[in-house]
Design a protein around this nucleic acid. Sequence first.
DNA 1: CGAGCATCCTGACGCTGTCAACATGATCTT
DNA 2: AAGATCATGTTGACAGCGTCAGGATGCTCG
Lengths: 210, 210
Amino acid sequence: MTREKDRYHHGDLRAALLAAAEAVLTETGVEGFSLRAVAKRVGVSHAAPAHHFGDVQGVLTALAAEGFRRFLAAMQARQAAITGGDAEALLVASGLGYLDFAEASPALFRLMFSSVRPREETPELSAAARDAFGHLAADVARLRGVSPFEDSAAMEDVMAAWAMVHGVAELFISGRLKPMQTMTRAEREATVASLLKRSLARAPGGTGQR
Amino acid sequence: MTREKDRYHHGDLRAALLAAAEAVLTETGVEGFSLRAVAKRVGVSHAAPAHHFGDVQGVLTALAAEGFRRFLAAMQARQAAITGGDAEALLVASGLGYLDFAEASPALFRLMFSSVRPREETPELSAAARDAFGHLAADVARLRGVSPFEDSAAMEDVMAAWAMVHGVAELFISGRLKPMQTMTRAEREATVASLLKRSLARAPGGTGQR
DNA sequence: CGAGCATCCTGACGCTGTCAACATGATCTT
DNA sequence: AAGATCATGTTGACAGCGTCAGGATGCTCG
């Protein structure tokens, strides 16, 4: 079953390249990302990555896909940390996991959500993104007792919660949410929970859309 | 006082470069942005932009600053279009203007909010961004009758409304808000208004932060 | 043991941003 | 009016970039 180390010329170059790529991404952002810098960091020739990922877009696509998987894991981890929570508490936990990820890996977060470089149509990436979205949808389904895909009001709940937590995440890692930057961690989480609950408060009458 | 046209070699190269830069940005995104492509589009040598903007970051910074000014104008335009609206209707109008801008200039929107390339500390850029934020804060101040900078509950309202509309904008231009992509313009605006009103619904008890 | 193949390297191409040196033309001083 | 000065724009060079073609290396399996 082919141990990771001591085989081939390098070992497991693909994984090593991905790790180095994330490091480069973190240091330089998507805009300054360089394939040659990744190769140099691993100590391999500048053209080696092409054999595993095709081109630079391939590397960024694989990175984004792995990002979505870890993103989902961050939400699940927050949920696993609470014991006797109701459906709303579980949804709030997902939101906090959402923010955990964005805060821990802002460059990766932006690559996933605000970049045109990864190939969106790739099966691996679109599946990983769909799973992450599905997690939020499932949270709302549990809360409302109905699938968002069959109930437009529940779908509006999904959009509301998602947009709210995503907006907070984006603005926060951009340093534009000044009031939240000065809070303690506990204060911040309480505020985020409060904001998320707002997003679940259905307006009287709702949208009126089908 | 030095007319814009018919002087120097080109005329008003700075403005022409900015216009070309926005076109290139729209076509290629931040990641594929090229200073030489901008120069070529204007029909000028590849090093000409340096005299007006220093380097590529200077161009993107100026572009982002102009973006924030037009961003503010889009919010004001929506407000000017309604006649007898109350404070909440005015805030919703700002939100719709927010989305107008993001939808009309997604690449510029991302440059302003999700890129590390513009120099944030530049006076021109930070002032333009501050004005845009101030507009939202003023909307909330009118709605609540108190300045968000003196009332933490009102500041939470600002964060809520901002995060909500920003999240909607980001997810929408990324094509990730599927249910909203299939709506008519009127349906979409009604949904956004509904979501924005959610963000203004204070939870019973609030956050409890100072 | 040797064929085949996945893996990795070398060298080249045109592209990029930035810099230094030079040309041009408007403005200001004397 | 003439010359100096400076903003404006050009040219050429440099290293770094992504990508491709071709060659080297070493594992795997017949």
